[in-house]
Structure formats: C-alpha cells, structure tokens
C-alpha cells in the first residue's frame, strides 16, 4: 500500500491532539526560523487557542527572529495575541536548582550531598532530566490568565526550539533506569532508614522525596513525549552531506527513545532551475542540493519532506515570518511563488 505524503507540515498544524512539538537539527540550518514559522502558523490557524514557543538553545535567537525582546517568562508576540515566547537556558535552570540546594545545605562535607553529586554524575541523562524538569516547572508557572489552574499548562501546544546538541532528549531513556535505582534506594531506606536518619539528620528523606519526584515527573513526561498523538519532533536540515548525515543520526536516536518523527524541513534551497538570469554559483549549488534532495526523497519517502527556499534577506519580524511560514502548509513553487525571495521587508 502506497501513501502519497504531502510535502507540508499541515498534518502537524491541523492535528488537534498535539501538545509538544520539538524542532531540532544541526546549528545554522534554520531551526529558529522553522520553529517560529510553525508557531506562527499554529497561532494563525487556531486563533482561539494559546501557543507557547520556547527556545532552550543557550544562544537565543527568538528575540532576533521576532524583533522583540523575550526573556525567562512568557511574553506575547506583538501582532499575534495568541502566541507567546520565552527563552530559557536549561543549564542556567539547572545551576539555579543547584544554588537553591546549596543554600539549603551548605555543608561541603555532607556525605549525602556528595553522594547525590556522585549519583547524578553516574546516571546517563539525569542532568538533562533535571534541567528539563526545571524548564517544565517554569512552563507550568506561566499562565495566560490569572484564573488558570496552577498545576496545569495553559497552552494548547508548546513548541520547543531545541539546542543543536544531540542529547537534548537523552533523558527519555531514563525512567526505567531511575525506577530501578529508586527501588534500590527505597529498599535501602527501609532497611537503614533510622540509621540514615541519625547520620543525615533527616536530609536523606528529602533526597528520596526529590528522587521520587524526579522519577514520577520523568515517567509522566516520558509517557507524553513517546505518545505520537501528543508529541512530535520536526527535523530541520539543509541539503548538504553533513546535515543529511546528522539528520539521519538524530532520527535514529529519537527512534531509540520511541519518539515520533514524521516531518523533515529542508531549508535554504536555491531552486535555481527557473531563474531568468541564472547565476553560476547558484546553479552549481542547486545541482549539489538536488543530489542530496534525491537521496532524501529515497531515504525519507515515509516522511513529510518540506522544501523551503533560501530568501534574499533574513527572515525577521512577524510579517516576514507569516509570509515565509505559509510555505510550510502550501508547497513552495518557484515559478508561482518566486517573488517571495525578494519581497520580504528588510528589518
């Protein structure tokens, strides 16, 4: 049975159940532009719902993309009342957490503290998990209305503009590891509880509570993130060897976490075939791009492969993003839509 898969992100934009959309890829391929475009299209197509776009990349570009300053707290985009943006550094969130812990317990010789540090260093993915939990906690604290439920996320869909590092979602493999670790700890706690209490002055109970909380949160998040009805990952790449290779590796890694990937956005395409006065460099580069596009078509026939053009200027500001993002839902045709390349307002 063959399916003709439309080369757009319409299925993502129209899918009612999606709660989380991750956008990722190598550095410089246009992740921020793509995530902003997806967020803009979601906001435009569902005017009655609220959306949140978050950058977890320490090199924040959302402010640049929207020509508007964003910070740690969600702020509405000027000109799109149902889209908010925020820029969070997960590493900073993590160090905030560590500082809090340090304030609470500033004894450098506390063996339990050192044990906790050793433990976090020994479990692959726990750093990412703790960072992500802090981000999620922060997201939960962002409210559209003052009357919103405190423990519930106020947004219909949250779009993540992720950092280019490959292990952003490594913590998805964590729950089972953490579960086993905690069961060991709990057994230990039952056996040596009174003695540990004597030695740690009651701090170890808080440590268990904290680990339990992390485990519960990670399991809950894991369930959501591996559910294709709730979460999807959009890969962004350019039509070059390294980008293609990294994209394939990323897809495989995400599949190993049981995460759904069904769309790939190929950015910065030149579409030089139909130029009236073709420039030699563009023609040559387009030839190279076509080679990899053919390879992608073969490799990703079961994916939505969205081809986006390279424009004459940088895509900045809500209006420009609206114009560009249209082609995430309607395939770009250089013959018909060619004027887009030069029609953007320079910011």
């Amino acid at each position: 049975m063959d399916f003709e898969l439309e080369p757009t992100l319409e299925s993502i934009v129209q899918q009612d159940t999606l709660k989380w959309i991750f956008v990722g890829g190598k550095g410089g391929v246009g992740k921020t532009t793509t995530s902003s475009s997806i967020a803009v299209q979601l906001a435009l197509n569902h005017p009655n719902d609220q959306f949140l776009l978050i950058s977890t990349d320490p090199a924040h570009n959302l402010s640049d993309a929207f020509c508007q300053k964003f910070g740690k707290d969600a702020r509405k985009v000027d000109g799109l009342s149902n889209l908010s943006c925020m820029e969070i550094d997960p590493e900073a969130a993590m160090s905030d957490l560590q500082q809090q812990a340090q304030q609470y317990n500033n004894d450098p010789n506390d063996p339990l503290k050192s044990m906790m540090n050793d433990m976090t260093g020994s479990i692959p993915g726990i750093d990412e998990a703790l960072s992500f939990m802090e981000v999620l906690k922060h997201i939960k604290s962002q409210k559209v209305d003052e009357n919103d439920d405190k423990d519930k996320i106020s947004y219909r869909t949250i779009i993540f503009d992720t950092a280019p590092t490959g292990h952003t979602l490594r913590f998805l493999q964590l729950p089972s590891t953490l579960q086993k670790l905690l069961s060991k700890f709990q057994a230990l706690s039952g056996k040596f509880g009174p003695m540990m209490s004597m030695l740690g002055g009651g701090n170890q109970q808080e440590m268990f509570d904290k680990l339990n909380e992390v485990q519960k949160n990670v399991t809950e998040v894991n369930e959501q993130f591996t559910n294709p009805d709730l979460t999807t990952f959009v890969c962004v790449c350019i039509s070059e060897f390294l980008s293609l290779y990294e994209t394939e590796r990323m897809i495989q890694e995400l599949m190993s976490y049981n995460m759904d990937v069904n769309s790939i956005v190929v950015n910065q395409l030149l579409f030089a075939d139909d130029d009236e006065k073709p420039c030699k460099r563009c023609v040559s580069r387009w030839k190279m791009q076509k080679k990899y596009l053919d390879q992608m078509a073969e490799l990703y026939e079961d994916y939505h492969l969205v081809k986006m053009p390279l424009l004459g200027t940088e895509i900045r500001g809500v209006e420009n993003l609206k114009k560009f993002s249209k082609f995430l839902l309607t395939p770009y045709d250089p013959k018909v839509n060619g004027d887009l390349v030069t029609s953007l307002e320079e910011k």
Binding site: M119, S122, Q173, S176, T177, K180, L181, K184, Y257
Partner: peptide, 15 residues
Amino acid sequence: NDSVALSNSEDIDEM
C-alpha cells in the same frame, strides 16, 4: 530502549 535500560540496571550495582 529496553536493552539500554537492562544494561543500565546491571550497571546500577556497579554504580
């Protein structure tokens, strides 16, 4: 995923 988890579980005692 399971295999990662399993090997992790085997490593837990070591950890």
